[in-house]
């Protein structure tokens, strides 16, 4: 199980990175917009919440609900912050990637 949970899927990485980028401002609306503007991909809020739920379950994210004002009809916001194991998982994913990429040149596109 440990091996499997240590592995991050692509969308999980994207969501985790968005949370890291947004620092203290990482809640649903912002995360979704961040991902959409950075990747240019369409993301449904439902799909994103499933991933957030899974990352929280794995212990990579910590959630904290905070009251919000009139701006969302009195509904609370759920802020996410990355945990230490979340950071470790991201680093492991990046190490894995760079190891695999090391020394690879595809058709000379990259210098």
């Amino acid at each position: 199980m440990a091996g499997r949970s240590a592995y991050l899927g692509e969308f999980e990485q994207v969501v985790l990175l968005a949370v890291v980028r947004l620092k203290d401002g990482a809640y649903g609306t912002n995360i979704r917009r961040e991902i959409e503007t950075r990747t240019g991909r369409r993301v449904t809020i439902g799909a994103m919440y499933v991933t957030l739920d899974r990352l929280a379950e794995k212990g990579y994210l910590r959630a904290r609900d905070a009251p919000a004002g009139e701006i969302r009809g009195g509904r609370p916001r759920r802020f996410f912050t990355i945990t230490a194991s979340g950071v470790a998982a991201l680093e492991a994913a990046r190490t894995l990637q760079s190891r695999m990429w090391a020394g690879i040149q595809l058709r000379g596109n990259r210098s």
Partner: peptide
């Protein structure tokens, strides 16, 4: 529709996010 499909504990969060984005962005 969305509310009904969601688990009750997360309805306000998700709908709130969606409403906020709709109105402000």
């Amino acid at each position: 529709f969305l509310r009904r499909a969601l688990p009750p504990s997360q309805r306000d969060l998700v709908v709130g996010d969606l409403d906020e984005e709709f109105l402000h962005h």
